[in-house]
Design a binder for these strands. Sequence first.
RNA 1: GGGGGAGUUCCCGAGUUGGCCAAAGGGGGCAGACUGUAAAUCUGUUGUCGACGACUUCAGUGGUUCGAAUCCGCUCUCCCCCA
Length: 408
Amino acid sequence: MTKNVYDMLKERDFVAQVTHEEEVRDYLSKKGATFYIGFDPTADSLHAGHLVQIMVMRHLQQAGLRPIALMGEGTGHIGDPSDRTDMRSVMSPETIRHNVDCFVHQMSRLLDFSEDGVILENNAKWLLSLNYVDFIRDVGPHFTVNRMLAADCYRQRMERGLSFLEFNYMIMQAYDFLMLFRMRGCRLQVGGDDQWSNIIAGSELIRKKDKEAAWGLTFRLLTTSTGEKMGKTASGALWLDERKCSVYDFYQYWRNVDDADVGTCMRMLTLLPLEEIISYERLEGAAINDAKRRLALEVTTLVHGRDKAEQADEAARKAFSGSGDSAAIPTCPISEEERGNTYIDVLAEHGLMPSKSAARRLIQQGGLYVDDRQVTDLFETLSDDVFDKGEVVIRLGKKRHVKLTSSF
RNA sequence: GGGGGAGUUCCCGAGUUGGCCAAAGGGGGCAGACUGUAAAUCUGUUGUCGACGACUUCAGUGGUUCGAAUCCGCUCUCCCCCA
């Protein structure tokens, strides 16, 4: 047995479940063998979770396989109930369309869509024009409601309620797999572990309808060592779009992961050689910070490019240890009219704090610093440095740094 | 279609003999201590504001009352049982 990509994925902690280990392993050793991963256009930007999927694609492509990135424009009209307790809100066709466009745009920077690269597909192509009766007569007989209800992905919805619309999601995804098998000879679907039920539904459909072999492989969801989903910030998902999450904040997210999670993140989200990762994993105590810094730099580079990643790294050094270039620290433009306003007003006004009350609390609790000087006076007004020097760096709490700049 | 139950602050969830409720408790968030820009732990805080007081909240709306999250009418939403 020679070492192949499958083993590599295992070594890097990706693999969660496989339908048929030997066959899949064998399939993955074939040059040009096709596999697909689906992307649900639920937002106008990819987020940290998608990064895992993208890395898997890159690794497999590197190994000579043919990846298909399937945009779920069609399935987006239904909404995947997997792994969630609440009902998805129904999105308008325009929104879904727009989200797909955003995904494709972002992915073009992360994946190789060239001639021999990743194939882009969109299930709107075959799903939206389906005729209901024809469709259920075609695939319906191959599913039993009994089994579907027993599926893991629906279980947690049994209490809260699962609409018939959402219930159909699994069948749609199974149909996608069938279509890609017929159109592209794709015999393997890969996805997050929450997709397991949907994936096996597809491989079974191919077996039943076309009497052909098809397999599924899921990779671990990005979770913390305590089981919580990673890639969540206070305000929601960790977006890859710079406009929704600054490069600096993105960098800081990874710089701040728990000690216990650094290794896994490195394995799954960077292209560093395994040996190097293992040596990082051996670090202990404060030295782990070196690993985190490397992790942040690598992941940020992947998403935003080397230059921006290095700027973020510089800015972080400046913010936390005084030396470095503060260029990448998030800025907040202050207008001339604000000269003389209190910090409470300024912080609330620019959304740096959710309300004046919150800003007031921050100061009362000693969490506001201006140029490393703690603000103790509740009514202290904006430093003139903002206008005279053009900028002043303030710190909110232990970790948030913001550069106030004059905007004229 | 018939019968029953429920809708509370970011979430879960107390509170319904009307005042002591801006509303228990937990989670989460935020700030501080300790540290390594980690975890765990501890402390404080967590509606808004011109702030030891004032104002707006307990699905919506209209009432009863000196006074309502708590009582009554209507509306909306959700759940459950029967059909």
